[in-house]
Design a protein around this nucleic acid. Structure first.
Lengths: 249, 249
DNA sequence: ACCTAACTGTGTACTAAGTAAGCAGAGTGT
DNA sequence: ACACTCTGCTTACTTAGTACACAGTTAGGT
């Protein structure tokens, strides 16, 4: 499962030319990728094995390796293929643009929650992902921001959506595994709530008692509005605050 | 690697009593958990195998199973142990509180980036994680927010930190795997930049040319400031906007 | 038209990692 | 002393990624 990132780069950005000799391939890289996406969508990331993908295609496991170098690269290709299904952020006011970008990502993650469960460590940004990101940069390009501020603004939005998406993906996965919805599960664990004594978890018991957990706000809508508000404060400020040099990079 | 969540709950919240009979155990659950954390810290999540943990402890692989039910539950225990190392958010003004909470999480993720690479689907919130979260709720408890708004505010912060943390964890992982720093790697891939033509990626090439990628802002500091600004807009508003009922939960 | 090199799909087999099952020795309560 | 229980170990099974070699297929050079 180790992956040479260089190999992934070439694969994503420089797809090899079709061979001129040899038998015509019954399979193709794109069919493998599509099949893999379908498996992951329908059965979750745990079911995404080379054997399973091959099975759904009606080929042997090893035949896949004629079209993708390995599983890790297959994941790269899957991710970029999904990015390719999203719409590029159109031109317009910055807030509309970022809102659009965030909603596209969110829709993508909702359709393919497995994306957030992959160890992204070795993922390579592919052409589609980059194009979408570029379009988001464009959305904030006319505000007089410095280059690095443009990056930071878009990154902040993307990271927020990643965060919410991950929580969502976890919920989906848990429900798939257990067959029990999140809500039912918590309700069924009364023994757990016994530990939620007011002295250990004062606010949680209070929120629980006042029903706060039963009418949760939409995490995505709430958070996105807050993030955009925060960015608005920054963007519309007379002079933009310097960002403290910190721990990251 | 399947995990019964109920088993994890019991394990985390109701640690079993010490046995009275039989030989005294040379190993213990906490030693296993500690060793596993050390392995994950030092060698990354890929190196975290039962065999490797056992090896560092000088025991056989199977001896671990006398102290933890399986790897999945071990991960739950590791995560909650790490949460136990963090400091609880102290009382004070809401913004200081949330800032503190975010920085604690951030420090935790920086020290243990593997936390963000685990498929959290099956993670169970343990007592320590819950306690910390509760303290964060307390930080915003005196603002006249409705229960569900309290949850939403803290969740927004936590999700942001998760998002940034994940990006950071990916970077760490990539550097460990390749032995090449993120920067060196990008610089070494000139062939990749050839694809960054202005027509395909106009803003990216522009940002690249103006050096925006070379003096990136600190993602955590920048994003946190924006998120807190956005929450401030919400919290200090005369009347709080209703959150549109959306797709989530 | 033939030969050859390139290419495809397949069968077999190896490796790594989680973990089930059963065993031998150790220590406590009757 | 006996029985019960608990610990750590050995062995072996299972799943998943993938290396390797083989057989059949096709296009281009002779």
């Amino acid at each position: 499962m180790k992956s040479d990132r260089n190999r992934s780069v070439r694969l994503l950005w420089e797809p090899p030319a079709e061979p001129t000799r040899g038998p015509k391939a019954a399979l193709s890289q794109s069919r493998v990728v599509e099949a893999a996406i379908k498996v992951a969508d329908a059965e979750g990331v745990d079911a995404l094995t080379m054997r399973r993908v091959a099975e759904t295609l009606g080929f042997t496991t090893m035949s896949l390796y004629r079209h993708v170098p390995g599983k890790s690269e297959l994941l790269d290709l899957m991710v970029d293929a999904v990015w390719g299904e999203t719409e590029s952020t159109p031109k317009g006011p910055w807030r509309d643009g970022l809102d659009f970008f965030a909603r596209q990502m969110w829709a993508m993650y909702r359709a393919h929650p497995w994306m957030l469960q992959l160890t992204t460590s070795r993922r390579m940004p592919g052409p589609h992902a980059m194009t979408r990101q570029d379009a988001a940069y464009v959305a904030v390009s006319e505000l007089g921001l410095r280059s690095e501020e443009i990056v930071a603004v878009v990154t902040a939005v993307a990271q927020f959506v990643d965060g919410v998406g991950r929580t969502m993906a976890d919920r989906v996965q848990a429900e798939r595994e257990t067959g029990v919805s999140e809500e039912d599960w918590w309700n069924g664990r009364e023994s757990l709530w016994e530990h939620f004594t007011p002295d250990r978890l004062p606010m949680m018991t209070h929120i629980w008692n006042t029903g706060g957990f039963e009418r949760l706000l939409d995490e995505f809508e709430f958070g996105l509005a807050r993030v955009l508000d925060g960015l608005a404060v920054f963007i519309e400020a007379e002079e933009r605050p310097q960002v403290r040099r910190g721990t990251c990079l």
